[in-house]
Each structure stands twice: as C-alpha cells, then as structure tokens.
Design a protein around this nucleic acid. Sequence first.
DNA 1: GTTTTGACGGAGA
DNA 2: TTCTCCGCCAAAA
Length: 106
Amino acid sequence: MDEETIERVRTAVQSIPPGQVATYGDVADVSRAPSPRLVGRVLSEDGHDLPWHRVLRANGTCAPHLAREQLELLRAEGVLADDGKINLRQYRWAAVPPPEEPPSLF
DNA sequence: GTTTTGACGGAGA
DNA sequence: TTCTCCGCCAAAA
C-alpha cells in the first residue's frame, strides 16, 4: 500500500474538527483511499495519534469494541449519541476533497 | 503461491 | 426501521 495514501487518510482524520464526525466512506473519499476498509485498517494500525473517535460507520454507529470509548470521547466534544447511534445529519463533517483530482485525459 | 479476515458500504429482505 | 449478504483492498497466516 502506498505510504501516501496512509498519510492522506491520517490527514483527513486530523482535519475533522471537534464536535463533528465523519464516516469511513467520507474519509476514504477525501483521502482517495481505494476502499473504506483501508481507512479502518489504517486507523487500527496507525491511528493511535489520530482522533479516530470522530470516524464512524455510514449508518452513524461505531465498531462494537470501540463504541463505549467513541461515545464517551464524542460526548466530551458535544456530540451526543442516541442509543449508541449518532445523528450524522447533525454532526456530519462537511468533507471537502483535496484539489488533487485525477487528471483529465485530454 | 492461495485463503481468510477486517475499526466498511450499499442493496435487498 | 433493522438484519443479512456480497463486494471491496490489503495484510497476515
């Protein structure tokens, strides 16, 4: 895997402002990761220095093992969860993709 | 070299 | 609305 992709993923996660959250798909999209699963893998392996608690699943829930920590950390930032689920419509991060887009072929 | 699994997303039931 | 199945890419066994 390209180290740059990992770096972009980490940058994207760090770009999430407090009080807001993003989904794995969003992070994968803005970081141009090949797959959302790569985001989870990157966070799992190298996400110790990142605000990983601001990254949730597409449906607003989080991973079972992390749910408690996630909710607690997010709660400290003002992101309240209802029944273990977060209103993405309210807290979803307005992800802005980097200007580096795939070049036009002509 | 192949097979399995994972901090996931989306569609179908 | 929630649950299940399939597809996705990469690393580990």
